[in-house]
């Protein structure tokens, strides 16, 4: 089960991240997971939210450059070696991870991680075959 991530282009300028978050807050959108990839001159904010359709519409209406990307959220045992266990599945199945980050909240004892794969469909299929617990869109919305 794939989830939708929103990526936003951020100029390296004071208050820009605040503007995105405040806009989403005012619209009643809750951020479930986020990360920022930064370079010398710009950043890319990546978020998973409860209402992604509304979020992208709002961002674009406010002149932000944003797009949608398919990602997969996976529950990982919150214990030593938990992440390694899941990464071994990817390595063995020849799946390439572009980047990953953690959720703000979790809904069980397990940690929640977002993965962006080179080939999302292939990754989702293998995860299903291996019986790895993937978080659904409904679960994210209900967090």
């Amino acid at each position: 089960m794939k989830l939708t991530q929103i990526s936003v282009f951020l100029e390296n300028r004071k208050g820009r991240l605040y503007e995105v978050c405040s806009l989403l807050g005012k619209t009643g959108i809750n951020i479930r997971a986020l990360t920022i990839a930064e370079t010398e001159s710009f950043g890319v904010l990546r978020i998973v939210v409860d209402k992604s359709d509304l979020a992208i519409k709002t961002l674009k209406a406010n002149n932000f450059v944003a797009n949608l990307t398919d990602v997969v959220a996976i529950e990982v045992g919150d214990k030593p070696g938990g992440l390694a266990e899941i990464l071994k599945v990817f390595a063995d199945s020849d799946i390439n991870v572009e980047y990953m980050y953690g959720f703000v909240e979790k809904f069980s004892d397990n940690a929640l991680l977002v993965f962006r794969f080179e080939d999302t469909d292939k990754a989702a299929k293998i995860l299903a075959d291996k019986g790895v617990k993937v978080v659904t869109r409904r679960e994210i919305e209900g967090l």
Binding site: Q5, S7, F9, A37, T39, F42, V44, R46, V65, A66, N67, T69, E98, Y99, R116
Partner: peptide, 14 residues
């Protein structure tokens, strides 16, 4: 940066 060329991947933007 126009929407058409924007990517969530930093390496593509770089």
């Amino acid at each position: 940066v126009e929407e058409k060329i924007f990517s969530d991947e930093v390496k593509k933007l770089n």
